[in-house]
Each structure stands twice: as C-alpha cells, then as structure tokens.
Design a protein around this nucleic acid. Structure first.
Length: 566
RNA sequence: UGGGGCGUAGCCAAGUGGUAAGGCACCGGGUUUUGGUCCCGGCAUCCGGAGGUUCGAAUCCUCCCGCCCCAGCCA
C-alpha cells in the first residue's frame, strides 16, 4: 500500500467538502459533474487532474460525470481530437456511459436563449468592429464606454441577429452582446460578446451554423441543460463566475449549476499548454502528439506509464487553490510504485561486453530458473538459457575499480543473477586498448546463485546468453526541457529544450522472451529500469522505450563524486 | 493602476482559537540473489511580515509585503 486515498468525501479537498455539504444539507439529492474538453488538442497530465476530480467525485458520491465537448469554436476544433480524447479517457480508466454530449447539441436552444435575452432587453447586436469594441471596453482603471448601438430597439437587434444566423454578414461584421454594465470593475461584465459570426465548417454541425456562442454563453447554459450540480473549472475562470451566474439568473434555464474553481496542475521540466504542445509537434521537436517525451496522455502511454500511476499521482498532489509547480519526481514516484508491483522482470543488456566462461563446457546450455517478480510470487518464473559466452553490461566492469565500486573487476567474484558466481581472470583488449572481452571462471557449486559455503558476492549482475540474445533498439528518455521552469526569467521556452532528451541505443541485446512482448506491456529490465515496446517495433527489429530508470544510488554517488573533483 | 485569487519545510498539502498531519525530495541505519523494493530513524520552537484581541492565534482583527489571473468576436 502506498498512496493515501481520500477515504470519504468529507475528508477530501475543499471541493469534495462542498459537495459533501450540499448532499448532507439536502441542496442536492445527487451529484452531476462534467469534464468539458475543447477538442483542439490532445489531453495531457494537467487534464488528468480535472478528469480524476470530476469523475472521481461522481464515483465517490454515486452520482455521474458527463463527457461534454466544448465545441464552440469551429476554427480550431477537429474530429481527430475528439476521437483521441475519448480514447485517452477510457485508457485512464473512466467511463461516461450514455452521457456523451457536445455543446453543439445545444446550438438551437442556445440560440433561442440568446433571442430571449434580446427580447428582454438584456442583449443587443453591436455593429462595432473588434478593434472598436476593445477601445470601448476601457482599461483596468477606467470604465468602458457604451457602444452607440447599445440602445438600439430590441426588434432591430432581433432582426439583425436572425440575419446574422442566416449568413447575410461576413465574419466579424456584427456580434451579439449581453447588456450588463460597461462600468463594472469586472471586465467580463462590460457587455461581453455572446455570439459571433464564423463562416467555418464545424466538425459536428457542418455548415448548419455561421453564428457560434462564445464560451461564456455556452458553458453555463450547457451545464444547466444537463443538470450539472457542480461545474468545476480552473482558477482563471474565477472572474467569469459573476457572468456565469448572471446568465443563469437571466435565462429560463432548467436548473441552477454552480461553478467552483481549483488551481491547475503544473509540473517541473514540463510545459502544459496546448498551444506550445502543438508547436512542439508542428515544428518537429518531437515525434508527434504521442512522443514518449510529451506530457500528453498518449505520450505517457507510449512511454509506458500505467494509468494507475497517473491516477495515484493526481490523488497524491491534492486539489487546492494555491498556484503550484509539482516536482515531476512525484509523478515518477507514483509510476515506479505501480511498476515495481506489476512489471515482470527481464534481462537486457544495453551496452554489451562479452564474457567467456573458460571452464564452462563449450556448447552446453542450461535453463536457469529466474523469478518473474520478487515482489509478487504469483508472477511465477521463467527459464533463461546460460551458455559459455555471455554478454554483461559494460558499466558493470571496471579494470581499475574505484572506491565503492563493487561490481566486476579483475580477480573479483560476482554473482550472475539466478545463475553462477564468476570470477574475472583476464581482460582482453583490442589494438586501441579498449576492453573487448572478459575471460572468467565460474564456480559450478553456485548454480542458481547460492554458494554452499555461504560466500556472498558484493554484486549481482544481469546477463544474456550470446547464443540466444535478441538484438534490439532502445530509446532512452530524459526531460524534454532541461530547466525545471521552462521559459522562466524571460527566456524563450524553446531555448530550454533538452538536446539530449532522447538517446537511441542500437546494439542492445535482450533475452528472447522480450521478442513477444505486447504493446502497452511495461517490464523491468533488471537493474536498469522499466521499458516497454514502442509501436515502431517491426518483425525483426525490436524497439523499446525506457519508461523510467530504477532509483540508482550508485549513479547518484558517482554524480556527487564528479562534483567533488570538479 | 481597478477587480478577482493565493501565501504553512526544497516541492505538493492537511489544519476552520487548545499548542504544526501526510506524501515527494533529502540525510542516516537495517534487510536484500536488482546499488531496486521493503523496514526503522531524522528533517517547520514555527505557519509571508509587523502590530493587536485572547488564559491561549497558522486559525480572529488591523496594516504592510509578495506572487498569480483578467482589458480575445480563445477556452
């Protein structure tokens, strides 16, 4: 057990407390939330926080959570994104049953409500240009000025609004504005635009419309139509709540939703802005939306992060209203925690060094029994072939071992995991002086990895049989951005891109069972980290992505040593 | 500058007048056929600052400081 799960709604974050109180005090019989993505990009970990919050609350309270696409801007939205978002949500582990909606489902109703606003004198068609509207809006310190069209007769606005819908005017020619208060200290209340003309093909409604409601006009009303009780969004919409409430108050909507705001998730070494993610993709800095370095759901999936790890992470960071930048190490912790429990162990050598066991019979093959997961006996074991010629990790040998290095070295004995103890007798080098082979001797009495006399080597190494190993390409990943705060201190974000975020290793050798690994299955390469097959794998060419390394105190010691001598 | 928010350890985050939870990170120590996992211990005399109220304040009051968001016909 690991991550503390909020046991009951009462003991959760401030939003869960509000929900619990609403239920307890009878303001609602049931809870209805919604996750409202705009289909203009892929989902990322930031969204995971909102998803887990909305779907989580519904689940905990026996309520329901709707999936509603906020598709009010056809110039930016695409079907590709709708499909990807649904797939990502399912993968994360959530289900909306019958409750799949689109703001565009409500375009007719929304239009009628806009007409209602005009009829009641609460909205008008404005002929000002976008620039003029901006000039009239005023500033933080000066009130806005009323548009000359503000008091135009309702009938005239009605006629114009109908003609806007009929397509008589070009984009931007006129807008419908709510008639609220041009002197309000809250700029959102200075006669906000609620409908604009957009002659654009909509992924759902095609060319049925050429006027589209703005976010402010569509969101709350869609909530009301669906009977949403708690409309949960991020902090930047706090200023919009008075407008949200004003519209609900002034329209004959069927229910009364309330908006609550929480602080969005930020991560070190990461950018969670759909605009920037789009640029990373379009400008070729990554392999695509699902590049394993991307913080997108599809990227994390391709990287091998289990959905459970992402969910654990989200509950670990909590929900509050303070701006935050969570250390990406927390996400990594949650992921390792799940993988340690679930990932089958395998042998793989990334940077091979040949070992010849001189006293082992040439041509002999032994099937060594190797546990699949010491954390989980029910995972069973597998057989791995042992032969005279083996490959070990180059990093596991040092001709002149430094202090605290207790792996293989001349004259030193180590254990080959689940096989035998071997002692290095001779180092073979090429003309350039590079170590190319180790001549070793094994102790036949240590079969399986235990010595009858109780000898315990300081190190245990992984290995693969040269005669059986399968070649593979392995892609190592590091942070996409080298700075914990990309773009901080006025830097261009792209200057912070890590040039070494991907390292491709080609001569890797892995145990044969890895050749049949299915996509989406993350395994542990013993002593190295977690890895999963990449979709780029083809018959004959295995490609693995490194999900994460194992925690590595030896590497840490070395790094510290470097600093001491530097 | 007007409005809206937020400041508890390096990072997240509980705490709602009774004497600072928990997690991540970090630092020790133990176990270990992964330098992994696991286990044990350490890590805020103090809650942005200064005053005040109170027997008692992170919690209440006053003033000050800092950070974030808002002037799209984006969401």
């Amino acid at each position: 057990m690991s991550v503390q799960t909020p046991s009951s709604p009462e003991r959760g974050d401030f939003i869960r407390e509000i929900v619990a109180a609403d239920l307890r005090e009878g303001r609602h019989q049931t809870v209805v939330t919604r996750f409202p993505p705009e289909p203009n990009g892929y989902l990322h970990v930031g969204h995971a926080k909102s998803i887990c919050l909305n779907f989580g609350i519904a689940r905990e309270c026996g309520g329901r959570c709707h999936l509603r696409f906020d598709d009010t801007n056809p110039t930016k939205e695409e079907q590709e994104y709708i499909d990807a978002i649904e797939a990502d949500l399912r993968w994360l582990g959530f289900d909306w049953g019958e409750h799949l909606y689109y703001a565009s489902d409500y375009f007719e109703q929304l239009y009628e409500w806009a007409v209602h606003l005009v009829r009641t004198g609460k909205a008008y068609v404005d002929d000002l240009t976008a620039d003029e509207i901006r000039e009239h809006r005023g500033t933080f310190t000066e009130p806005g000025r009323e548009s000359p069209w503000r008091d135009r007769p309702a009938d005239e606005s009605l006629d114009l609004f109908e003609r806007m819908r009929a397509g008589e005017f070009p984009d931007g020619a006129r807008v419908l504005r709510a008639r609220i208060d041009m002197a309000s200290a809250n700029i959102n209340l200075r006669d906000p635009v609620v409908y604009r003309i957009l002659h654009a093909e909509h992924p759902r409604t095609g060319d049925a419309w050429c006027v589209y409601p703005t976010y402010d006009f569509a969101h709350g009303q869609s909530d009301a139509i669906e009977g949403i009780t708690h409309s949960i969004c991020t902090l930047e919409f706090e200023d919009h709540r008075p407008l949200y409430d004003w519209l609900i108050d002034n329209l004959p909507v069927p229910s009364r939703p309330h908006q609550y705001e929480f602080a969005r998730l930020n991560l070190t070494h990461t950018v969670l802005s759909k605009r920037i993610l789009l640029r990373l993709v379009n400008e070729g800095h990554v392999r695509g939306w699902d590049d394993p370095r991307m913080p997108t759901m599809s990227g994390l999936r391709r990287r091998g992060f289990p959905a459970e790890g992402i969910r654990d992470f989200v509950t670990m960071v909590g929900v509050a209203k303070a701006d935050n930048v969570v250390e990406v190490g927390m996400l990594e912790h949650s992921v390792r925690n799940v993988l340690n429990r679930t990932a089958p162990r395998r042998f793989a050598v990334l940077d091979p060094l040949k070992v010849v066991v001189e006293n082992y019979p040439e041509g002999q093959v032994e099937e060594m029994e190797v546990p699949n997961n010491p954390e989980d006996p029910s995972a069973g074991s597998r057989r791995v072939s042992f032969t005279q010629e083996l490959w070990i990790e180059r990093d596991d040998f040092m001709e002149e071992p430094v202090r605290k290095f207790f792996r293989l070295a001349p004259g030193r004995e180590v254990r080959l995991r689940s096989a035998y103890f071997v002692t290095c007798r001779e180092v073979v080098k090429d003309a350039a002086g590079r170590v190319v082979e180790l001549r070793c001797r094994y102790d036949p009495d240590t079969r399986g990895g235990d010595a009858p006399d109780g000898r315990r080597p300081k190190a245990t190494l992984h290995w693969v049989s040269a005669a059986h190993a399968v070649p593979a390409e392995v892609r190592l990943y590091d942070y996409l951005f080298r700075s914990p705060y990309p773009g901080a201190d006025g830097r261009d974000l792209f200057e912070d891109l890590n040039p070494d975020s991907e390292t491709v290793l080609r001569g890797c050798l892995v145990e044969p069972s890895l050749a049949g690994l299915a996509a989406g299955e993350t395994v542990q390469f013993e002593r190295l980290g977690y890895f999963c097959p990449d979709p780029d794998s083809a018959p004959g060419t295995l490609v693995f992505n490194r999900t994460l390394t194992l925690r590595d105190t030896w590497a840490k010691l070395q790094a510290q040593g470097r600093h001491d001598t530097a």
